[in-house]
């Protein structure tokens, strides 16, 4: 019972803030809406017996990535310049159609799915979400993706340096 209530609240929060993320004009406000969405999703993770992932979600996503966004928005100016007319405006309905079609397909698929246990009560789970469990899984079974991910992060860091360097030079720096 409690689980369902918490789920509904968290889901509603995620969806509503999601709507705000995609509709707010002010970039700052949109980013803040994203924070709300991320926190709601973290709650969902907790419900799903993934405490470690939930915490990482808060620290990394809401804590680092969103901060990055905020910095860049501050640097570039929060309001999008007026710019030209949206030349793709007439085609808006197509976008709606396509998204509704996709979600609709998903819905139909779920409705007809024979996946065992899809609509049942969730079973009790063992220890799958604790840091120890995640750590063991990484080291024992998924060491390669682990290392690959570190490589990706390294590349991203170098790329960031390079991109920033060019920017500085362009502005007359060394």
């Amino acid at each position: 019972m409690a689980e369902q209530v918490v789920f509904v609240i968290a889901a509603a929060g995620a969806l509503i803030s999601g709507v705000l993320v995609v509709t707010l004009e002010n970039a700052f406000r949109a980013t803040v809406a994203l924070i709300v969405t991320l926190v709601s999703v973290a709650v969902i993770f907790l419900l799903l017996a993934a405490p470690f992932v939930a915490v990482i979600q808060i620290i990394v996503y809401a804590g680092a990535i969103v901060v990055l966004f905020l910095f860049v928005i501050a640097y570039l100016g929060e309001r999008s310049p007026p710019g030209m007319e949206d030349r793709l405006a007439p085609y808006q309905p197509f976008a709606w159609i396509v998204v509704i079609a996709l979600v609709g397909q998903a819905g139909i698929m779920l409705a007809n799915s024979d996946l065992p246990g899809l609509r049942d009560e969730p079973q009790a789970t063992g220890d799958i979400g604790s840091p120890e469990a995640v750590g063991r899984a990484f080291i024992d079974d998924y060491i390669v993706p682990f290392e690959a991910t570190s490589a990706i992060l390294l590349v991203a860091a170098i790329a960031a340096v390079l991109l920033a360097k060019r920017a500085i030079k362009f502005e007359g720096g060394r």
Binding site: A2, L118, E121, P122
Partner: peptide, 8 residues
């Protein structure tokens, strides 16, 4: 039912 099924 008191839990949240996967489909939700």
């Amino acid at each position: 039912m008191s839990g949240v099924p996967l489909i939700w």
